[in-house]
């Protein structure tokens, strides 16, 4: 039976109570940062600012997912973090291409 990435990392997630709290608190702090990034996405003023803000938000989400996976003891959240890291890039490329040459998305 083949081992997935999350199964291979399982021992690394056997952590104590204190370190769990640290992971969850840092996840909350990263979410506070996300609100600051979202301010840029709302304020703009140009579309490029917004795309950049959402791209950084996506990277931030990957970090928060990894911290949550460690804090909650759920290594399967790392798989979602990987999917997000890939798709976030695709989204930024699509929107950037759309704004540079109108009509082109992919």
């Amino acid at each position: 039976m083949s081992t997935t990435i999350s199964q291979a990392l399982q021992p690394a997630f056997a952590t104590g109570e204190f370190i769990t709290q640290v992971f969850l608190v840092s996840a909350a702090l990263f979410m506070l940062l996300a609100i600051a990034m979202f301010y840029r996405a709302v304020k703009g003023p140009t579309t490029q600012d917004r795309v950049l803000a959402v791209n950084v938000l996506g990277t931030n989400t990957v970090v928060v997912l990894a911290l949550l996976g460690a804090g909650l003891g759920e290594p399967s959240l790392l798989d979602i973090a990987l999917v997000y890291a890939l798709l976030n890039f695709l989204m930024a490329v699509a929107i950037s291409k759309f704004t540079v040459e109108r009509g082109g998305v992919l």
Binding site: M31, A34, F38, A41, V42, T47, R50, V51, A53, V54, L57, G58, T61, V64, L65, L68, I80, Y84, M91, I95
Partner: peptide, 14 residues
Amino acid sequence: VIVVFAAYSLGMAL
């Protein structure tokens, strides 16, 4: 709206 909706989707996935 499309860009901001992507941010909303990030939050929901979390």
